[in-house]
Amino acid sequence: MKTQNLIERYMSQLDQYLAHIPATEKAEIILELNAHIQDSLQNGNKDVEEVLNNLGTPEEAARRYLEERGLSLSMPKLSGQKSETGKWLTIAFLGSFGLSIAFAIFIMTFFSPLVEVQEEEGKVRILGGLINVQEDMTSKNKGKKHKDKKIKAHLKFSGTDQGKEKHVEINVDGDKESPNIEIKVDGDQLKEDQIKLIENLKNLEGEIEGLSDLEKLEKLSELEGLKNLKELKSLKELKNLKIFEELRELKELKVEKESPTEEAQAE
């Protein structure tokens, strides 16, 4: 009786560990092991504890069957309470993880961009405007930064307009971004009503459309009497157009092709 009880208990535990194996196969396994135990007890002169011990614990025996099928051991249903706790732990973990992700996204959106540098205004915005830093305009950095942007050009040319000799002088000075351009005619600051047509420029008008600023400047420099513009050409980053436009305003100034006299100075 005691023997049968031990066997029964062993088999019922084995049955639980073999949960993933189909019922009919499981029944066969149990039946076969049962037959083996009977054989061992009858022919092997062994007691039931020893026989069961040779089979290994129900868990070990089940694991071997499952491993042969590429399965892993399933926990018996006895540990239901444990898995309940595990379930709630998982929910709590996933929940708090999700919340922290959502919070992080909110923070990132609200305070973005983290750092924004507005160089022109000399401003730095941190955390989406939470902190604003105004750059000190007199700071040494500012001076340094603009030092290499300084440009300087000086050119002179002369021509005749309605029999009178005209001397045109162009000075470019200062910041590359917004240079000071000074145009003098006969030593006087150019005034709009004094400006007369330059034929060459007029002729050029049709040709220069669609050209880049540098190309426009090149065209201009080909004009006799405007050779000194070649000096400007080397200053590739100069706002060429600005100078060009200034020159275009010399609409009524005539430059005689035949006798261009030029003095040039360039620094």
Binding site: E32, L33, N54, G56, A61, R64, Y65, E67, E68
Partner: peptide, 15 residues
């Protein structure tokens, strides 16, 4: 040959 080893092997070989 341990019983616990033999029977699972027989089981797989049959399968």
């Amino acid at each position: 040959i341990k019983e616990g080893t033999l029977y699972p092997i027989l089981n797989r070989m049959t399968k």
